[in-house]
Amino acid sequence: MNIVILDTNCANLLSLKLSIKKLGYQPIITTNSDIIKNADKLFIPGVGSASEIMKQLFMSNLIQVIKSISCPTLGICLGMQVFSSFSSESNGVKMLDIINTPVTLLNTQTLPLPHTGWNQIFFNQHHPLLHNIKTGSWFYFIHSYAFPVNKYTIAYTEYNMQFSSVIQKNNFFGVQFHPEKSGSLGSKLLFNFLEM
């Protein structure tokens, strides 16, 4: 199986690769469009700013490649947010518009930003990505922007407000948390995605 991690030049590339290797797979980190087009599973990790990740995708000529990809694709943190129509970060950034919903700054009132640390995800229906994971399970987050709860929301998290912590539209899946930093449950989620 061709497991591809998109090289978004972000800090969690190697930790994600190591987490996948521990599950018995051999992922490739690349921006090569031919390799990406032939992926069986594609990961889009992201740490940093919306403008920077979109700049990376533009410079690598990957925007249309990702939008037209048909294999199961998992966006992680900022990698999930690239599926949105627009991010309100940095006075506004146009995203891939795979999901026609904007990503906005969390309305945390007196709670600190970024939202950092362990928090729970909640869901009502069984989903293959969450197989053997219970509602109320804890995962590791670090972010300031998020998808609002919408029709593609699979699970949500509360941090003064509800936001989407797991989404799916067609072959595009997204998690706002970092499974590679979330211990055994994070490994379980990665395994579920790889075994779909």
Rank of each mutant, 00 (worst) to 15 (best):
L23T: 13
L23F: 14
G24N: 12
G24R: 06
G24L: 09
Y25F: 15
Y25C: 10
Q26M: 04
Q26Y: 06
Q26L: 11
Q26I: 08
P27H: 04
P27Y: 10
P27D: 06
P27K: 03
I28N: 08
I28Y: 14
I29G: 14
I29H: 09
I29Q: 13
I29K: 10
I29R: 07
T30R: 15
T30M: 07
T30F: 13
T30Y: 12
T31L: 04
T31R: 15
T31A: 13
T31D: 15
T31S: 15
N32I: 11
N32M: 06
S33A: 13
S33E: 11
S33M: 05
S33V: 11
D34M: 07
D34N: 09
D34V: 00
D34T: 04
D34L: 04
I35V: 07
I35A: 04
I36Y: 05
I36R: 02
I36S: 03
I36N: 05
K37S: 08
K37E: 12
K37T: 00
N38I: 00
N38P: 00
N38M: 02
N38R: 07
N38Y: 02
A39Y: 04
A39M: 12
A39P: 00
A39C: 06
D40F: 08
D40A: 04
K41M: 02
K41E: 02
L42N: 02
L42S: 09
L42H: 00
F43W: 07
F43A: 01
I44K: 01
I44E: 06
I44R: 05
P45C: 01
P45R: 03
P45N: 00
G46M: 01
G46V: 08
G46R: 03
V47S: 04
V47T: 06
V47E: 11
G48P: 11
G48N: 05
G48F: 13
S49G: 01
S49C: 08
S49P: 01
S49T: 13
S49Y: 13
S49D: 02
S49M: 07
A50R: 03
S51P: 00
S51N: 12
S51H: 06
E52P: 00
E52Q: 06
I53M: 08
I53A: 10
I53P: 14
I53L: 10
I53W: 06
M54K: 02
M54H: 04
M54C: 00
M54S: 10
K55F: 09
K55G: 08
Q56W: 05
Q56A: 11
Q56D: 03
Q56L: 06
L57G: 05
L57W: 03
F58P: 01
F58L: 05
M59F: 04
S60F: 08
S60D: 05
S60W: 03
N61E: 10
N61Y: 10
N61T: 09
L62N: 07
L62S: 02
L62K: 05
I63K: 01
I63T: 08
I63D: 02
I63A: 12
Q64P: 10
Q64G: 08
Q64N: 15
Q64M: 15
Q64E: 15
V65P: 07
V65G: 11
V65S: 12
V65K: 07
I66G: 03
K67F: 14
K67L: 09
K67M: 12
S68E: 15
S68N: 15
S68R: 09
S68C: 12
I69D: 11
I69V: 15
S70L: 06
S70E: 13
